[in-house]
Write a protein that binds this DNA or RNA. Structure first.
Lengths: 233, 233
DNA sequence: TCGAAGATTAAGTACGACGTTTACATCACA
DNA sequence: TGTGATGTAAACGTCGTACTTAATCTTCGA
């Protein structure tokens, strides 16, 4: 992961964030702003701004006379998209994927139920379109194309739920699906049963059948969890 | 809400964050760092660090020659605890409380089910203790004491689930419960049915009955949603 | 009318200085 | 010897200024 060309701030932030979430700085360890400034060959100004952002993510704590100390994992803002990306790129991706998939299994069924009640005609159409796209790309090792439809599908469901907190999990789901496709030894083609379920969810939402939409989505989630058990024990 | 005495950075950040989330700066509006520096009588350095943090929350976007522009609501990092607090303190608290309660209704039942499987003896004991505390304070207008036990109870459940993403929602739940107690015209005493349900959840978790724990927690959630419908239409 | 070159503006970066807090060591006294 | 007050220095906090970069606006010429 090269993090070049987006300004000094972003470069330092990404590198440090990645290192911290990867556990290179164990909990409680201390770094000093001057050191960092020297190591990256940037001014203290830049480092201070980076530290402030890491502090806002609760990754570190800055105290006078002490330095910048790394906080324990339990205090991190693990819902911050950047933290999620860093951790998925790091060493404990498996555990992270599992946590996030469990979260999905809780949220998405409820979101689908709400979507069945609140989805606009446009959203219903988009849902069907993406489901069909998944069908069309479900054979012949077209995982990349399939992934695009998969992500779009779940994003529409979350948005159509009408709940802001659900909608904002679209990025998380996208990261999870991407991580699953790229970094796990996924099967050559997606599970046909899952594809069918997506089509049926689109149907249920279109027909306003909240209970069925919720149940079907729960089945998708269970499938995803089982798949994780098989591929990443 | 006076935000004094915690360093310049915190003061400016809180004030600006509160103002932005409250909608005082409409989406797309522009502020300039120099203006802010002058308004708060601080240096540009402080303002820049604040802007960087707001930027990391996706509340604003900073572009050269343009200024700091407020991003649309849909892009905010609404899971950031600070953003949640700002919004709960602001004008659209009702809508916010509803979003968060729906999120709870999706997450907590699943978390309770997992807790029934993974809870340690200590956690079971803590759960029972908090449930009993809720019973003890459920009559006689002791809402404040009740609230403490309620928060602790849900925190234990989320932690005992063993899922990091769930555990980190403890703060969110705490904010929701607190907001509900303090800012809504709550009944003089909590719903007796809800109190009983909490005791039963503690039982189910202790006995390792995942299905029952999940179902009971779902009933609690439904109750909370209905209460919201009654009190904040 | 349109396009390109230049002026303007506001953020990005850097540096140096001083202020403030506080961990830690030292010393005095009981 | 132990305990508390005191002093000191290390690290972050804040500030002001100067310079750089890039986006936008203006102007001018074809």
């Amino acid at each position: 992961m090269t993090t070049e060309g987006r300004g000094l701030h972003t470069r330092v932030l990404d590198t440090l964030g990645l290192a911290i979430t990867a556990g290179e700085y164990p909990q409680g360890s201390v770094v000093r702003t001057d050191e960092v400034a020297q190591r990256f060959d940037v001014s203290r100004t830049v480092v201070r701004e980076v530290v402030r952002v890491l502090e806002s993510m609760h990754l570190v704590e800055s105290r006078r006379r002490v330095g910048v100390t790394v906080r324990p994992t339990e205090e991190w803002n693990v819902y911050d998209p950047r933290v999620i990306r860093w951790r998925l790129a790091g060493s404990d991706r498996p555990r992270q994927l599992r946590s996030l998939t469990v979260l999905r299994s809780a949220v998405e069924p409820v979101a689908a139920g709400l979507a069945a009640r609140h989805a606009t005609p446009d959203q219903c159409a988009a849902l069907t379109e993406q489901a069909l796209g998944m069908v069309a790309t479900s054979r012949g090792r077209r995982l990349e194309e399939y992934l695009v439809h998969d992500i779009a599908f779940h994003r529409v469901v979350l948005n159509a739920s009408g709940n802001e907190m659900f909608a904002r999990l679209g990025d998380v789901v996208a990261e999870v699906l991407t991580g699953r496709t790229h970094h796990q030894v996924m099967f050559d083609d997606p599970d046909p049963a899952a594809v069918t379920l997506h089509v049926q969810v689109a149907e249920a939402v279109r027909e306003g059948d909240a209970v069925r939409a919720e149940e079907l989505t729960r089945e998708i989630a269970v499938g995803a969890l089982e798949e994780l058990d098989v591929l990443a024990p």
